[in-house]
Write a protein that binds this DNA or RNA. Structure first.
Length: 567
RNA sequence: GCGGGUGUAACUCAAUGGUAGAGUGUCAGCUUCCCAAGCUGAAAGUUGUGGGUUCGAUCCCCAUCACCCGCUCCA
């Protein structure tokens, strides 16, 4: 299973130090979140896994970390100043909102009501560079990291002596003054991107056997898709969605989104977009672009740039003139991922609630009795509602609808019938639409919750490479100094290789549960046998199985399991 | 920005027009030979914030902020 709804994730995130609401002591600020001690580890691990995959594991990639503040002209020529604003109008009658450039005429297309004057929402945050707050110092916080890569094209290509095709990767914060942020960290105004610009030859200049932009685009789509799968996303909750021609930005030849099935109302939502942008961006920032190309790309002449961002291809031979070498503006494939979105997806995917041990029938008596009473009451309410409906009268506004009552009643019956395996289902029943207004269910909730506390666990089945803490070390008895000493020594010895914690503030069962909840893949327990033979038990998070491993072998053993190099 | 809902201890929730309780969690001590065990004790909230009505508000009213669910967006 995965997280049933986003609230579970929000609550766990707060409780266990993954993600906090920003500026909470002042009542918060809209849609802004802080990553806590475990959240920063998780997100760093996501970013590191990405960097490793797209930079280190390939031979054709370089990294970059460009400034957030850039010359305003970057945003003028990239098109953001003009087009990254949405002129919005609202219908005064039906309250619907439209983009004024998307509608014909001056009345609401839905109800023909009167519209407000268009208001322009430029999505870029503005600021002023230097002491004078006037137009001369106006700057923007970047709304995407991509432009920093484009304007550095020549720098990277020449200093690294790169030949096409090659790419540049960058991770960094971007800012958009979104009109409607929300869904936890899914859409925020300050967010982190993991972007690649992969430069390649335009079709015209390909040598035989070289891949064209269409093939490379497809390869990136497949590679990026499998990255998520390799790190634990179930392919059934991951999809590629090719954008319709009408959806495409005019400069994009094709775009495929990678979408994840988030819990709750968010549903299928974009993690990453992989676009074939052709030669649009580099041309936009270049001087001396030929008229025909400007026209093709719907660009206006760049009168400010001092460079032409092009590439000298010395291998190319003109088939007509036989002349060697040619200059052209490369095409670009852009895989653009959201670091916060990926992190959120991994969290949602990892979330599990499981039955750890089976309660005895005697443990369930109270739950069964309370549910029987609730079921009876629900039956009555359903009958009442049906009678009302037969009379043609609408249900009382304050009560749950007949359909809600019926589905709650069914769900409750199923949960009871499936006991004890369905212990976890009761909370879901209590959270169903309309359930909050049923007093009978309010009695079920705490009883079920108590049982869940005892017989179930929350476990984050994060990929070990993403887990914030890799290893936890426990003494089986904390009032046995010899055991404690060995455990603390192990923690110290593993520290250089792995993120490791020591904990002795609870019984062994509780210590395991705590680590399960934050996704720690391995727990080491030092017991009396350890004192004799210098081994410890290594407990696996997912299977809860234990094996004995020699203390001296721990670092190698664990690094191998996690898939990290010891050096 | 518009409509609906919510806001009480770290979390999940309860209660009342007379200034708040439970469970979980946390901390300390004892205990414990492997899956949220037990015992003892402790800390913790100007009931989101600011106004108003009232002798008195956490509860009623208004505003504001934040979050959740619907309209927009694309990392």
């Amino acid at each position: 299973m995965v997280a049933p709804d986003m609230e579970k994730i929000v609550s766990l995130s707060k409780r266990r130090g993954f993600i906090f609401q920003s500026s909470e002591v002042y009542g918060g600020i809209g849609s802004t979140w802080d990553y806590g001690p475990l959240g920063v580890e998780l997100k760093n691990n996501v970013k590191r896994a990405w960097w490793r995959s797209v930079v280190y594991d390939r031979e054709d990639m370089e990294g970059l970390d460009a400034a957030i503040l850039m010359n305003r002209l970057v945003w003028r020529y990239s098109g953001h100043e003009a087009t990254f604003s949405d002129p919005l109008v609202d219908c005064k009658q039906c309250k619907k909102r439209f983009r004024s450039d998307h509608i014909q005429g001056k009345t609401c297309p839905e109800c023909t009501g009167e519209l407000t004057e268009p208001r322009s929402f430029n999505l870029m945050f503005q600021t002023y560079v230097g002491p004078v707050q006037d137009d001369s110092g106006l700057a923007y916080l970047r709304p995407e990291t991509a432009q920093g890569i484009f304007v550095n094209f020549m720098n990277v290509q020449q200093t690294m002596r790169r030949k096409l095709p090659f790419g540049v990767a960058q991770i960094g914060k971007s800012f958009r003054n979104e009109i409607t942020p929300g869904n936890f960290t899914f859409r925020t105004r300050e967010f982190e991107q993991m972007e690649i610009e992969y430069y390649c030859k335009p079709p015209k200049y390909l040598q035989s056997g070289e891949k064209d932009d269409v093939q490379l685009h497809q390869e990136w789509i497949d590679q990026r898709f499998s990255w998520y799968v390799r790190l634990g996303i179930d392919p059934s909750r991951l999809q590629k969605r090719q954008q319709e021609t009408a959806e495409l930005a005019h400069y994009a030849k094709a775009t495929t989104d990678i979408e994840y099935l988030f819990p709750g109302s968010l549903g299928w939502s974009e993690l990453e977009g992989i676009a074939n942008r052709q030669d649009y961006d580099l041309s936009a920032h270049s001087k001396d672009i030929a008229e025909a190309d400007l026209e093709r790309l719907k660009l206006s002449k760049n009168t400010d740039s001092v460079q032409k961002l092009d590439y000298f291809d010395e291998q190319y031979t003109d088939p007509e003139t036989n002349k060697k070498g040619v200059r052209y503006v490369p095409y670009v494939i852009e895989p653009s991922a959201g670091a916060d979105r990926a992190t959120l997806a991994f969290l949602c995917e990892a979330y599990n609630e499981e039955l750890v041990s089976e309660p005895k029938e005697s443990d369930l008596t109270q739950l069964r009795e309370t549910c029987a009473a609730a079921a009876k009451n629900l039956e009555k309410k359903v009958a009442e509602a049906e009678k009302q409906r037969a009379k043609g009268a609408d249900l009382k506004a304050e009560g749950p609808s007949l359909e809600q009552l019926k589905s709650i009643s069914d769900a409750l019956a199923n949960a009871v019938a499936g006991l004890p395996q369905t212990l976890l289902a009761f909370e879901d029943v209590c959270n169903m639409q309309g359930a909050e207004r049923l007093d009978v269910l309010k009695k079920v909730r705490p009883i079920a919750a108590k049982l869940c506390d005892e017989f179930t666990r929350v476990v984050l089945k994060l990929h070990p490479q993403l887990a914030p803490i890799k290893v936890a070390v426990f003494p089986l008895k904390k009032n046995e100094p010899r055991i404690v000493e060995v455990a603390k020594k192990i923690r110290q010895d593993l520290q250089p290789f792995l993120r490791v914690v020591y904990d002795d503030t609870a019984g062994i069962g509780k210590l395991y549960r705590r680590q399960d909840e934050i996704g720690t893949p391995f727990c080491l327990t030092v017991d009396f046998q350890s004192l004799d033979d210098s081994t410890v038990t290594v407990r696996d998070r997912d299977t809860m199985q234990q094996e004995r491993v020699a203390i001296a072998e721990l670092a190698t053993h664990l690094c191998k399991k996690i898939g990290l190099s010891i050096f």
